[in-house]
Design a protein around this nucleic acid. Structure first.
Length: 835
RNA sequence: GCCGGGGUGGCGAAAUGGCAGACGCACUGGACUCAAAAUCCAGCGGUGGCAACACCGUGAGGGUUCGACUCCCUCCCCCGGCACCA
């Protein structure tokens, strides 16, 4: 053992030790205490920064902690290997995606190893391997079989670079989640999954996910967007065409003075075709289609519209109102047609004022003062129903149910629930993805490829040269095939599956990564799943996590597994940010901002344990944190000091007793240190279980370390002091092992242990050791600390009160005052209330 | 607008009804050194004071309580999700 702490010398050795000894490999079949800890697998982008590292380090702490507790921990890692950057690199640099992906995986795997994170690499998977995507295609077929995969022509989100996008991939500002380009609507025939059919169970089961952050459950609930209301069937007065609408305010239905329809709605062109207004209306529609999604979605955009020339009949009172095409009704929500009630909806109010449409009050306020002529804004509060025939006089709250009930009885409406979530668009016009296993036959239509013929392999020899279009569609050898049904010439589907589908089920494949006959074995996944602890970034709160839950529910309903949620507990770590050198602003670490910190150099300079310790110490792991280049020095100093202490006392430690057997034989100083050790065990164990407070767990270990420094142990110390010293250092190594595993193993070995510290068990708590003979209490007068009192533990209240009142330090605060009450918090404080 | 999370020293933070600022960074002074680095020791919320000490202090204001960073009410600010959503 050198006096100088040299992580370079020890770290790679321990990394090989763990790997050669298969310390993180588990036999899924025989494991008695299964625990599945999963860290979200990365896209192999090439290189990772310290922000990525935080994710894997947190996961590794859990893996090591659970391993020390004796669990059979499943800790796999793999690659979300299909995706856009590899294909773009192919276009720009002429490197085949397969090649760049393989190279990136090699480099990133080296990085993961250098952090000392423990994975079962024997289970490594990559979603771009035919052995894997064969089963992704199988999942597509399962959905197809169950009527949950379908093709439709619809206006879809289109990004020039990323091609089609799911709704979830479009940000609130109308830009592409991936590349930031503006998203427009394009009419295309695409493949969708009917996630809407699972909207209710996806929402309901959120309640069961108690191990998930409230925030993520909340985000998913918002995204699903359940809204209770009524369906009311209006009709076009001139043609009798049905016009069903969704409303949450049926109580205002007698106040309808016009109807508003979305520009994209097919009924618009259907109605106006061949009429005098056709030109004007369609010009308006065209103009809206050309407007960017972001602008249309902006509530600040001025409301506009055009009259269609048609009217819509209100089934409640038979009145007809004009039908307007407007820019503020969205196609995607409800039926794309809205009953407009200017008196009681601010948007309708603004529109009606602009186009001189009448306003009719049907809910009167308490003062009875609402008058259409004088209203400055819509009245949206509760009130009493007026101008509504038989419903007059009801509160509007009561009228909501009563009016819907009336519609139900009359057969022109019903209670209904509307969801915001849309079906999931899963096709992409790209090469580097799993081909959709469908053949288009001129006679038979779209025919699924039989399961036995999977995988549909991606051809290697494709032409990436062209700027636009899907290289797969240009590959004649891939496209030309025969119909599985009739045998005639047919063509393959050339769209590939969205990357999200590949990453939807990888956590199951890890259980049976090399199984050739199925995606997974039911008994095995039932044993290991749901994942006990899932760890990843908050950016996947809706996309990956919602899609995974949906796909699992389908696989459950197809009777391929018995559980209904994939991830029992979820931990979302915060991002690492850093100030930009250019503008001094704080940004998430990214290449484009030029604020990335490379872990490779830090590991070279300080070692992986120091990097790990600082990453964990930087702040609470669920919160964003600012990387401070100087902060790592603190972690480095701590480990160097620890190393030196062990080095300097090595002989003493090796000769000292290994166990504290008789507490009563210890001196006060020895008891104090031993108590501090057990207080640390208590705190650290609590932080490991309750919310992953690794930052404070490390702080506790540092405190213990400081306490060790304070007791000057040397050759002349008593045998019992040496024993306590040794036990404290050894136990401290076990507490430190999940955070800084290399140095913990090395010191553990130096102190004479043959086996890995991973097998040493998590330290148990000795409640006897925590006990004290005397405690120092705070003496308060009216809640302010005015003195201290050392007293025996559990001193009787009356005795304590007597001593407190007699205490010299507080006499001056009691002079001339009357003691009204004395509050005693056992072993903590005495508070004297005076007046 | 609706929903959720925050606001504590120069900085990262700790304390979930009981002694605010543990632990660390930075900084200041000292020791060691020819010198520097490393290391070690001490100090480090604000104001006043030579000092003992006093007063103030957890976004603002109010409340509950013997006692509030912590619970309740009102408000301000920051971050995230949803949103012309009918």
């Amino acid at each position: 053992m050198n006096r100088q702490y040299d992580p370079q010398q020890i770290e790679s050795r321990w990394q090989s030790f763990w790997e050669d000894g298969r310390y993180f490999c588990v036999d899924t079949a025989t494991a008695a205490k299964p625990y599945y800890c999963l860290t979200m697998f990365p896209y192999p982008s090439g290189t990772m920064h310290v922000g990525h590292g935080r994710n894997y380090i947190i996961g590794d702490v859990v893996v090591r902690y659970k391993t020390m507790q004796g669990f059979d921990v499943l800790s796999p890692m793999g690659w979300d290997a299909f995706g856009l950057p590899a294909e773009n690199a192919a276009k720009q640099l002429g490197i085949h995606p397969k090649e760049s992906t393989t190279r990136n995986i090699t480099h990133m795997k080296r990085q993961l190893r250098s952090w000392g994170v423990g994975y079962d690499w024997e289970r490594e998977i990559a979603t771009c391997h035919p052995d894997y995507y064969r089963w992704t295609q199988w999942i597509f077929l399962k959905l197809y079989e169950r009527g949950l995969a379908y093709q439709k022509a619809a206006p879809v989100n289109w990004c020039e670079l990323c091609t089609t996008l799911a709704n979830e991939e479009v940000l609130a500002d109308g830009t592409c989640e991936r590349c930031g380009r503006p998203v427009i609507k394009k009419n295309l025939k695409q493949w969708f999954f009917k996630i809407t059919e699972y909207a209710q169970p996806l929402l309901d089961d959120l309640a069961e996910l108690e191990g998930w952050p409230e925030k993520v459950r909340n985000m998913q609930a918002n995204w699903i967007g359940r809204s209770e209301g009524a369906r009311i069937d209006f009709t076009v007065a001139e043609t009798g065409a049905p016009v069903p609408i969704f409303t949450t305010r049926p109580d205002t239905i007698h106040g309808v003075t016009f109807m508003a329809i979305a520009p994209e709605h097919p009924l618009v062109s259907e109605l106006v075709s061949g009429t005098a207004r056709e030109e004007e209306v369609m010009a308006f529609v065209q103009r809206q289609l050309m407007t960017a999604a972001a602008e249309r979605a902006d509530a600040a955009t001025a409301k506009e519209g055009v009259f269609t020339g048609f009217h819509v009949r209100n089934p409640y009172n038979g009145e007809s109102s004009p039908l307007w095409v407007t820019n503020y009704v969205v196609t995607d929500y409800g039926t794309g047609i809205v009953m407009a009630v200017p008196a009681h909806d601010q948007r309708d109010f603004e529109f009606s004022r602009q186009y001189d449409i009448p306003i009719k009050v049907v809910i009167q306020n308490e003062a009875g003062s609402l008058d259409p002529a004088s209203m400055a804004e819509a009245f949206v509060d509760d009130g009493i129903i007026v101008n509504s025939g038989a419903f007059d006089g009801m509160t509007n709250r009561d009228a909501i149910a009563a009016m819907t009930q009336h519609a139900k009885e009359q057969g022109f409406g019903d209670f209904t629930v509307n969801f915001r979530i849309r079906d999931w668009l899963i096709s992409r016009q790209r090469y580097w993805g799993a081909p959709i296993p469908i053949i288009h036959c001129p006679d038979c239509g779209a025919i699924p490829i039989p399961e036995s013929e999977l995988p549909v392999r991606l051809p290697d020899d494709v032409d990436f040269a062209a700027d636009h279009g899907n290289p797969l569609a240009r590959h004649d050898g891939f496209v030309a095939t025969t119909c599985p049904s009739c045998g005639k010439p047919a063509s393959r589907e050339t769209d590939t599956l969205a990357q999200w589908l590949c990453s939807c089920w990888y956590y199951m494949r890890y259980v049976n990564p090399r199984l050739e006959t199925a995606a997974y074995n039911k008994a095995d996944v039932d044993k290991w799943l749901p994942v006990d602890q899932y760890i990843g970034g908050i950016e996947h709160a809706v996309l990956h996590l919602l899609y995974s839950r949906f796909i699992l529910k389908v696989l459950h309903d197809a009777d391929t597994c018995s559980f209904r949620e994939p991830f029992g507990a979820l931990f979302t770590q915060g991002m690492i940010c850093k100030r930009s050198d250019k503008d001094g602003q704080l940004y998430k670490m990214s290449k484009s901002k030029g604020n990335v910190v490379s872990p490779d150099e830090l590991i070279e300079q300080y070692g992986a344990d120091t990097l790990r310790l600082y990453t964990l110490f930087i702040g609470p792991p669920e919160k964003d944190a600012e990387w401070n280049d100087q902060g790592i020095e603190g972690a480095s100093r701590f480990l160097r000091r620890l190393w030196r202490r062990v080095h300097d006392h090595r002989e003493l430690l090796l000769s000292a007793g290994a166990e504290v057997t008789e507490l009563s034989a210890l001196t006060e100083a020895e008891r104090d240190l031993y108590r501090k050790l057990h207080e640390t065990i208590q705190h650290v164990s609590h932080d490991m279980e309750g919310g992953f407070h690794f930052n404070s767990a490390i702080a506790q270990i540092m405190e213990l370390s400081n306490a060790l420094d304070a007791c000057q142990v040397d050759a002349s110390s008593s045998a019992s002091m040496k024993t306590v010293f040794r036990v404290t250092i050894e136990t401290m190594m076990r507490l430190l092992a999940p955070f800084a595993p290399h140095i913990a193993e090395e010191i553990w070995r130096e102190l004479g242990h043959e086996h890995s510290i991973l097998r040493a068990g998590w330290p148990g708590l000795d409640h006897e050791a925590l006990k004290r003979d005397s405690v120092e209490l705070a003496l308060q007068v009216n809640g302010k600390v005015r003195g201290r009192l050392t007293a025996a533990v559990d001193m009787p209240r009356d005795e304590l009160e007597r001593e407190a009142l007699a205490s010299e330090s507080i006499q001056k605060y009691l002079e001339g005052k009357t003691v009204r009450k004395v509050i005693i918090v056992p072993n903590r404080l005495v508070n004297i209330a005076v007046s």
